[in-house]
């Protein structure tokens, strides 16, 4: 492609990417009366009232805190559980390995809607409904298989001779794992954490169904506002803008590994 048409394509697409986001930011800086009254391309009288409302009203800001709590718990659980399993898949051949790997993959692809009703019943029975743990565990359904999948890709890239040398030198398995192996695949762990964070952060269905008040995440707060009458568009837009911020921050930290992760982790 010639460099002129190259830049042309990129500009068109990035404008297309940014325009809806810009429009939401525009909305978030205006009052509801102003939004409904005039259609303005930029906020003529910018106000931070919507953001101030979100940061001071506990109904709103607790939504963000709840979401961050369960996403963190989920990422930690997924990584801890997936590390040994990924090691087994990348280093050993054992009875039923491909079958188990495939079965894990089916969980990643399973429709969340299928698991909705039984999850609700299960967590009600064990008394976990409306807790952060419930949502974190529910998200393990798709994040644990994903983590195993990505980590296996990264671990297979490390030559097996390293393990052999360590064992010959008399290193025990747990020690080898923590002091030698984990530092070697830390880029892989970062990428995995990124994807676990991403998929737990963006999910709506489980997060909405398994929480009532105490652990209600921001996504659920937002969908409930939409269905209510007398909708405040400015407030909704401000809440939406704030849900983009954590994701944008995370991208910034992993930007150098992202392309590599997409290729290696085969996601």
């Amino acid at each position: 492609m010639k460099s002129k048409s190259r830049i042309f394509v990129l500009i068109i697409f990035f404008v297309f990417l940014f325009l809806p986001i810009y429009w939401m930011i525009n909305m978030s800086l205006r009052t509801n009366a102003d939004i409904l009254h005039t259609l303005a391309l930029y906020p003529t009288d910018p106000t931070f009232a919507n953001y101030i409302k979100i940061f001071t009203d506990s109904d709103w800001y607790s939504g963000y805190i709840n979401a961050i709590i369960y996403v963190t718990i989920n990422t930690l659980i997924s990584l801890t559980v997936a590390l040994p399993a990924a090691y087994a898949f990348s280093r050993y051949r054992f009875m039923g390995d491909t079958q188990v790997f495939f079965w894990l993959l089916t969980n990643r692809m399973a429709p969340a809607a299928v698991f909705l009703l039984p999850f609700f019943q299960l967590y009600t029975t064990v008394g976990l409904l409306d807790t952060h743990i419930a949502v974190a565990l529910a998200h393990c359904l798709f994040n644990v298989p994903l983590a195993v999948w990505i980590l296996e890709g990264f671990m297979s890239g490390i030559p097996r001779e390293i393990d052999e040398t360590a064992f010959i030198d008399g290193c025990t398995m747990p020690r080898f794992f923590i002091t030698i192996f984990i530092p070697l695949i830390r880029a892989g762990i970062g990428v995995t954490a990124f994807f676990c964070f991403m998929f737990s952060w963006v999910e709506l269905l489980f997060a909405r169904t398994l929480t009532i008040t105490n652990a209600k995440p921001i996504s659920a707060v937002m969908t409930r506002t939409i269905s209510a009458t007398g909708l405040d568009w400015g407030l909704l837009a401000a809440a939406g803008v704030l849900t983009i911020v954590p994701g944008a921050l995370v991208i910034w930290f992993v930007r150098n590994y992202m392309a590599k992760g997409f290729a290696l982790g085969r996601v």
């Binding site: 325009l19 809806p20 986001i21 429009w23 939401m24 909305m27 991403m198 952060w201 963006v202 999910e203 709506l204 921001i218 996504s219 937002m222 969908t223 939409i226 568009w233 909704l236 837009a237 939406g240 849900t243 983009i244 994701g247 944008a248 995370v250 991208i251």
Partner: peptide, 15 residues
């Protein structure tokens, strides 16, 4: 890719 799915819906609803 990192915007929550319900926010995607909201963005486009407003748009």
């Amino acid at each position: 890719l990192l915007i929550p799915w319900n926010t995607i819906g909201t963005i486009w609803m407003i748009f």
